[in-house]
Every structure is written in structure tokens, then in C-alpha cells.
């Protein structure tokens, strides 16, 4: 049987928990790749703000390193740190840039068996909207199995709200 191919999507803020949770579920002999996507709009917006100054950001006042360079270096360091935390120095490191949700799907479009995704991790918003739009898109469109992990302690069973009173019907679906 060929080795299972797994991609772990690493995101700032939740990557530690995601790696820890994934490491418990990794089958022996699985091929692991770590994926990070840099959103392209952040550097774009920061750069455009200087354009809005109508050229006051001229000559010597440009930052020494462009936002893009800083973001690229940070992404590489994050992936290296994630590989170290996972204890898999053989893991492939995939660095992408663009619209995050689409780049993630593109990265797992072929020959991937499992995508590991950290939940957005806000325990206060459990319910239909508990996933952010980016994660929601990935969960909906990934052409492989998705393992959704909590980056921190999973909520307890007491987080379930009390059942609706008898005779209560959910509102009709709009579609």
C-alpha cells in the first residue's frame, strides 16, 4: 500500500496546537507536507497606503526590506519551526502566496489523502458560524478528507446549549 500523503495547513497563531494535534493522528510512514499561505492583500494594502501619500514616501524613507520580503522570511521560519515541532525534518515545506483559501485548495488538489486544518479556535462562537470564512471555504471545497483539529483544548460537552422547548421547530431553510 502506498504511503498516506498528508498536508498540514500551518497558520499563525494556531499552528502550535495544530501541529500537536496532528502529531497524535499521524499514521506511521505517512508522507507529510507543511503548507503556509501568505495573504497577498496585507503587503498590498501597506504598500498602497504609501501611494496614498502622493509620493511623500520618497527617496530614503522606503523601508530597507519590502513587506513582501519580510512576509516571505517569516513564512519560511514558521514552516521550519512547525517541522521542528512535529519532529519531522523530512517534511516537505510548501510556501504559497495569494488568496489564502484558494491557494490551500490548489495545494491539495492532487495526490493528497488528508488535509489537517486548525479550527479558528474561538470557543465563544460555537454554532453554524464557528468557522471563519477562509476555513469554511477550505472545509467545503477540499477534494480530500479534512481533519479539523482544535488548536487548544476542545470545548467540553457542557458547551452544548439546552435543547429547545417541546413544540419548537427550527426556522424553515431559505434555500
Amino acid at each position: 500500500m502506498p504511503a498516506m500523503r498528508i498536508v498540514i495547513w500551518v497558520v499563525e497563531g494556531t499552528w502550535q496546537g495544530c501541529i500537536d494535534a496532528a502529531s497524535h493522528s499521524l499514521p506511521a510512514g505517512a508522507q507529510v507536507a507543511l503548507l503556509h499561505v501568505t495573504p497577498s492583500d496585507v503587503a498590498e494594502v501597506a504598500g498602497a497606503a504609501t501611494t496614498g501619500l502622493l509620493g511623500r514616501a520618497f527617496a530614503g524613507r522606503r523601508p530597507a526590506r519590502s513587506f513582501q520580503d519580510v512576509a516571505d522570511a517569516a513564512a519560511s521560519e514558521l514552516l521550519a519551526a512547525a517541522a521542528a515541532r512535529l519532529g519531522r525534518q523530512d517534511a516537505a515545506l510548501l510556501r504559497r502566496r495569494g488568496r489564502v483559501e484558494r491557494e490551500v485548495i490548489r495545494a491539495v488538489a492532487e495526490n493528497v489523502d488528508l488535509l489537517v486544518v486548525a479550527r479558528d479556535g474561538d470557543h465563544s462562537r460555537l454554532g453554524p458560524h464557528s468557522l471563519g470564512p477562509t476555513t469554511r471555504f477550505v472545509v467545503d471545497h477540499a477534494p480530500c478528507a479534512v481533519l479539523l483539529v482544535w488548536p487548544d483544548e476542545p470545548p467540553g460537552i457542557e458547551s452544548i446549549p439546552p435543547p429547545p422547548p417541546p413544540g419548537h421547530h427550527p426556522p424553515p431553510r431559505r434555500d
Binding site: V11, E12, G13, W15, P39, D41, V42, V45, A46, A49, T50, G52, L53, R56, A57, R61, R62, P63, R65, F67, V70, A71, A73, A74, E77, L78, A81
Partner: peptide, 30 residues
């Protein structure tokens, strides 16, 4: 001007060093 040209790159680098998501902080600066 100081915020856009001098502070925003520092905030960007700080967030990258902390390995947090840059978007809210950079958008806040702009």
C-alpha cells in the same frame, strides 16, 4: 506619514516575529 512609512513596517515585522496574523494589525495602521 510617520505611521504609514515608519511605523507600519515595524508593526509588520513585530507581528511576523511573534508569528501572529498580520492582517488586523496592518489594517489598523493604515
Amino acid at each position: 506619514d510617520a505611521t504609514v512609512v515608519l511605523l507600519t513596517p515595524v508593526v509588520f515585522a513585530t507581528v511576523a516575529r511573534l508569528r501572529l496574523r498580520a492582517k488586523p494589525h496592518v489594517y489598523a495602521c493604515t
